[in-house]
Design a protein around this nucleic acid. Structure first.
Length: 368
DNA sequence: AAGGAACCCAACCGCCACCGA
DNA sequence: GTCGGTGGCGGTTGGGTTCCT
């Protein structure tokens, strides 16, 4: 019942793994690969069933796992994806590099679901995650999201009406065709310079987000528009090397022009509603408005979170070290979630006008 | 300080889909 | 078409840890 044949043939150990067992498994898999999991325990000298070995490797021992608490971006993404995908944790986890379905599931059940249950639904995000913090709050948490209409101080100048982010990934890869929701945009971080007119005078904003005027279109076209067919999460390698000592206004004006130029050239991501396919075709019909919001949220929450727009060429979203250092976040356009019920796997998002941004002075770790 | 409650999360369970014989 | 083996997934559990009184 539920056990695979390999588990029944011999007495297998259950429960927590010892460091010695971990070591054996790591050593074996790094040397030989896992091959057929059912044969792994025997060959690796473990008294475990293959299934247990597989789970241990996937959820804990894999070298590419990102340990530690979830970032705000990840949390927002989980919420959003859950509103689309429901409890399809594996699908959700695919869009969170270094995270496992088990981890996402646990996080949802322990942190997010709890909040949902205590506040109702996500339809009013501000009620679930009220403005509990100021810019100096030392204990950033999930509650650090601000609804835009609450006009907190030092908000990120995000507006869905401004072309904050240009989306250039319009690949339709096999995953998408097989039912995956591909939310892996290749995204340059293009903050609309015009929006800086309305924000605080904090110069760190400029230093963090401003595209450098020397970042010209040639460079852009070479690095950003180049489509990479590899399976890396992020294929863009674009860097705005702003130098602090440069003249602000000159840079600003140049950046505005660059920004406007880029807007004219960069193709847009296909609508999310067009990309979600199931076994028999498109199974999730996302309303255009919700789709737009989801796209915006996803785009804003992924690679553009690197303050200077730099996307690590190797790690992409797995750039753990970079992620840990990000202190500004671009969160906006949270559509509501109607998926307060964990059993709902076919929930459909409804529209919500509340938008959220992160206080840039906060840390990124989920919990302090 | 102690004991119970609440929480977290690694691991297991049960089911399903796929594949090859 | 059927069956066995396997991988994969979501739901659930239970033990360890942290929090609260």
């Amino acid at each position: 019942m539920g056990h695979h044949t390999c588990c029944n043939k011999q007495k297998v150990k259950r429960g927590l793994w010892s460091p010695e067992e971990d070591e054996k498994l790591i050593k074996y898999i790094t040397t030989y690969g896992h091959g057929c999991w059912s044969s792994v325990p025997k060959l690796a000298g473990l008294q475990r069933c293959g299934k247990s070995c597989r789970l241990r490797w996937i959820n804990y021992l894999r070298p590419d796992l990102k340990r530690g608490s979830f970032s705000h971006q990840e949390a927002a993404l989980i919420i959003e994806l859950h509103s689309i995908l429901g409890n399809r944790w594996a699908q959700i986890a695919k869009h969170l590099p270094g995270r496992t379905d088990n981890e996402v599931k646990n996080f949802w059940n322990s942190s997010i679901k709890k909040k949902l249950l205590s506040h109702g639904t996500l339809s009013d995000f501000s009620m679930i995650f009220p403005n509990s913090l100021t810019t100096t709050n030392p204990n950033p948490s999930f509650e650090n999201f601000y609804p835009l209409n609450s006009t907190p101080i030092n908000l990120m100048p995000i507006s869905t009406n401004s072309p904050l982010i240009l989306q250039v990934d319009h690949q339709m890869n096999n995953n998408q065709l097989n039912g995956d929701l591909n939310l892996n945009p290749v995204v340059p971080s293009l903050i609309n310079p015009l929006s800086f007119d309305s924000i605080s005078n904090d110069p760190t904003w400029f230093n963090f987000n401003y595209p450098h005027p020397q970042h010209d279109l040639d460079n852009y076209n070479q690095n950003v528009l180049k489509q990479d067919n590899s399976d890396s999460m992020l294929t863009s390698n674009i860097s705005f090397n702003y130098t602090n000592g440069e003249n602000f206004m000159d840079s600003r004006n140049a950046a505005i022009k660059t920004h406007q130029d880029l807007l004219m050239q960069v193709p847009l991501l296909p609508k999310l509603s067009e990309k979600i396919k199931g076994n028999g075709g498109i199974v999730e019909s996302i309303p255009p408005a919700a789709s737009q919001q989801i796209e915006s949220m996803v785009v804003n929450s992924l690679p553009c979170t690197f303050p200077n727009g730099y996307i690590h060429p190797h790690y992409g979203m797995n750039g753990v070290h970079e992620m840990e250092q990000i202190e500004c976040m671009h969160m906006s356009s949270f559509p509501s979630s109607s998926s307060s019920s964990p059993s709902s796997s076919k929930s459909s998002p409804s529209s919500c006008n509340t938008q959220f941004v992160m206080n840039p002075n906060l840390h990124t770790s989920w919990d302090s």
